[in-house]
Design a protein around this nucleic acid. Structure first.
Lengths: 356, 356
DNA sequence: AGCACTTTCGTGTGCGCACACACAAAAATA
DNA sequence: TATTTTTGTGTGTGCGCACACGAAAGTGCT
């Protein structure tokens, strides 16, 4: 293992000088800089990140702005746990992370938490840009202060975010279509469930639907795909009534696609006869959804690997700060296909965290 | 962030004493030990692994004994890359890893490489116990020297291995059955391909087949499942002839299950008419197999996450050595379902390694 | 040549921990 | 009581790096 000291010796300079060229700190004559760089390259040198981390203790500070979660809506719990785990992992690498949670239904809360966040003078910011206009506002502050920012899970266009970490929603929807088709190869109709609240704010859901539809278009299979809009999928009464009356009228529906994480609400409301005869495909490995897999009411879940999204985000930002490693602009996590048998194996790391 | 120094101050002892109780090094009076332990617990203290690693520089040495790979059989490449990546990651954590590759078809090679390995005086050993009797022999040495050992990918019973890291082959096979069924819901026959070489040596393949069959038994679906034994799946001529003649005789076959990583050999040999009408399910995300997904000849691949197996193994052993963290006895990695659309997203980390 | 700067570079300290060594007090032995 | 052994504890050094401070060398000017 080669060290800075070794490099310094070989170049007949002091460690300090090597350090200066390593960090582009300036104050080194062109000649010696060239010599040192040559030696660096020759040995393919890179600093010992462990020693570096120790020396850098508490130099960087990452702030994360993510939606809050509760028992009714657990989706954001996993990314949060991922962030938490990463926080722990990078803590000893001289980087601290503070997480701010906002109410995903209130723009004011988003802005308020951001203001709080800004006061901590972060070196970089990770955020879930839930609201377009408010994000524009927020980003102005960040750009003025030259704080790099990263988008998590929601991929807004037209911003100078260093990177986006999330899922390829279109492909995920496309896969859903494929699975649905292979599950019901005989001609029948499918139903897509939308909810009002998601329509206004979540373009990932749009892209999933687009992907789902495109599968059938591309394959040129003449399935009819209908859409049922339920005002608020979180409302049990409403959902129950809406889905059952619809299905009674349309007995040709053999598959239902729920492009949000609320498929369990649908399952809760659906009458037994429908559950038995209709294939369901949904998104996200929340505990409630997993339960639906386990009792056979849902065939497939497609997971965005939410835990990994949180975890990777922090790791990527840390690498960016400490090692100046520029990430890909778009970082897609794997699309996981979950069914009853492999659902319980998922997110071993996640479990570990929660049990602490 | 609380440090040993803080603990020492609070206990009115020196850092050395705290260090002694932290590492059970002995030589501390019961009274002070109790005091210190109380304070430790009170603050929920754990050592800074970064500083620890720096100080421990090169104290531990892990040796891995894994099968070699070549272009014809790439399966073991991924675990190797995983080990390599982990090697890099833990290098700066005071742990070095050396990997020894043996010819998986020659017992002598297994033993020979083990002897070489043993000379490096490893603190722990990771091995793929390909041969039962030879492993018994090998393990004797290890136990005598009190070197802990871990099994990777092959789960031999009756050993005192600290842990097994691999896949739940039975469930993976079960999933294969389920996917096959949902892909061909109308009554038809399925074919399982076995090869002589695998029969003798790989019980994972047995378990997969068992799982596959059990799915249909449990679901009580009256599919007929036949088996075709091909002497050597690596032999192109033989495979081609065997599969095509078989399929010509049995036109009722609508699905083929290949419980090994050689599905691409089958695809290579199969005539176009069969490829178009028969659903194929295989194992392992080798490049050749992925290609089969991409050109639509294979419907699903089930992946053992071989890269992660290698990576996690080393990480687990490192944690065991450095932090005395006792792992679960059996560590199953997630069973991944790959289809054309999500195959390319897999193993981002793996790509990174290989491009270096 | 003398002076005031600027550029270029070396030295020293600390990050938190592991461990060897030194040394005191207590206990055991003569 | 004197001496040896054991037990308990403090001190110092180094792991590889980051960075502040200040010294040396170089520059331009009068």
């Amino acid at each position: 293992m080669i060290t800075i000291k070794d490099i310094a010796k070989e170049a007949n300079v002091s460690e300090g000088t090597v350090d200066r060229v390593l960090h582009n700190r300036g104050g080194v004559s062109k000649k010696t800089e060239a010599t040192i760089k040559a030696i660096l390259k020759k040995h393919n040198f890179s600093v010992n990140p462990v020693a570096s981390a120790l020396a850098l203790k508490n130099k960087f500070h990452i702030a994360a702005l993510v939606p809050d979660f509760n028992d009714a809506d657990l989706f954001w719990k996993s990314p949060y746990l991922g962030i938490l785990k990463a926080t722990e992992d990078v803590k000893n690498f001289g980087t601290q992370v503070s997480t701010f949670k906002f109410n995903q239904y209130e723009k004011a809360s988003y802005l308020a938490m951001f203001k709080k966040l800004l006061k901590t003078k972060p070196s970089a910011v990770l955020l879930v840009p839930t609201f377009l206009n408010e994000t524009k506002e927020v980003v102005q502050f960040l750009e003025q202060l030259e704080i790099p920012y990263f988008f998590l899970n929601i991929d807004l266009e037209g911003f100078n975010n260093t990177a986006f970490i999330g899922q390829d929603s279109y492909t995920a929807g496309y896969i859903a279509g494929k699975l649905m088709h292979s599950n019901q190869p005989n001609l029948c109709n499918f139903l897509i469930i939308q909810s009002r609240s998601s329509i206004t704010k979540n373009n990932a859901i749009f892209k999933r639907i687009e992907g789902f539809n495109d599968y059938f278009i591309k394959k040129n299979v003449p399935y009819k795909i209908e859409t049922l809009k339920i005002e608020n999928l979180n409302n049990q009464q409403e959902t129950k009534k809406a889905i059952n009356t619809y299905l009674k009228k349309h007995s040709d529906i053999k598959g239902i696609f729920v492009p949000s994480s609320r498929i369990y609400m649908l399952v809760d409301g659906m009458e037994q006869q429908f559950l038995e005869n209709i294939k369901l495909i949904g998104f996200d490995n929340t505990p409630q959804n997993i339960k639906c897999l386990q009792n056979n009411s849902v065939s497939f879940l497609i997971s965005q690997k939410p835990f990994d999204q949180g975890y990777e985000s922090i790791r990527i930002i840390t690498d960016y700060l400490i090692k100046n490693k520029i990430p890909d602009h778009k970082i897609f996590l794997p699309i996981e296909i979950l069914l009853k048998e492999n659902a319980n194996f998922m997110d071993r790391h996640e479990l570990k965290i929660e049990n602490n």
